[in-house]
Design a protein around this nucleic acid. Structure first.
Lengths: 139, 139
DNA sequence: TATATAAATGCAATTTAGTTGCATTTATAT
DNA sequence: ATATAAATGCAACTAAATTGCATTTATATA
């Protein structure tokens, strides 16, 4: 378990009120190397209402603590923002990796998304790269 | 409207039985430059049951006629496979573009996904690149 | 061309993910 | 210490997708 004070500071820095739910959820993300879903939170924190967990995720999204990871449908997954993100300007130029064996989704924070090419007249606002395969643990 | 015979041949080539629903849905995809969702099909084909449309999409996915396009949640969208795909080996090395104005999702068939880099010991099986921005029509 | 059969369809019901409204509780600025 | 704006819990609801089953249909083959 990470330092409780540290969680509080992160929340305050993002202008969020400090509550038990937020501190614990943030700590869970910090101690996890993988992306997490609403379902993961429900499993970990039965003491909090589903709706509260949804709203916690959304407040973290809005404040730039988490980013949503695109996938091929199903459940939404979220990853910690390691770069400095503001609500309306997320910068996630790292690659996301989904292991087809264990199902876990990771942010490859040190793997930069390569430059994308689009047709004449198109404007790029964000680029996401999702790699599917087998992680080192499962290989 | 495309040639009815052509649709039938495509279905037969993918070892699918030829039905009205499948021919019409396939034709709709062929005449559309953009990716389509279940909802798009329901709007276009009120004569078919929702469940039938779901199953049509899934049979097209399984047989390699369509591929699923990753997104940041919401509804699933599907695009025609232009390369030759088999059920378990889809090759979609083109970039997907989502316009934030009109909401349409396109397969940029001639824009190749650049090479991804992953950590030591990771194996790559598929790479998806999704670009968000504004298309030429909306710019 | 007729027919057996495996597959596709339609309908009802269910599951799962996510959202909304509202009363109550709580964090925090003063 | 307290006013108040925000967070929580609960119930109800919406939307997306799935499952089971009876009926219909495509198609292989006799």
């Amino acid at each position: 378990m990470e330092n409780e004070e540290y969680m509080k500071n992160v929340l305050k820095l993002h202008k969020l009120r400090v509550t038990d739910c937020r501190s614990n959820v943030l700590g869970f993300f910090m101690n996890n190397k993988t992306a997490l879903s609403q379902g993961d939170l429900e499993g970990q924190f039965p003491q909090y209402d589903r709706v509260t967990l949804y709203r916690t995720l959304n407040s973290f999204l809005d404040s730039g603590i988490l980013h949503k990871i695109p996938n091929s449908q199903g459940v939404a997954t979220y990853g910690l923002c390691h770069e400095t993100c503001s609500p309306d300007h997320h910068k996630h130029n790292h690659i996301h990796f989904k292991c087809n064996e264990c199902g876990q989704i990771q942010c490859l924070d040190d793997k930069i998304v390569p430059v994308a090419s689009v047709p004449e007249g198109y404007r790029i606002e964000a680029v996401n790269m999702i790699v599917d395969g087998v992680c080192a643990n499962c290989a």
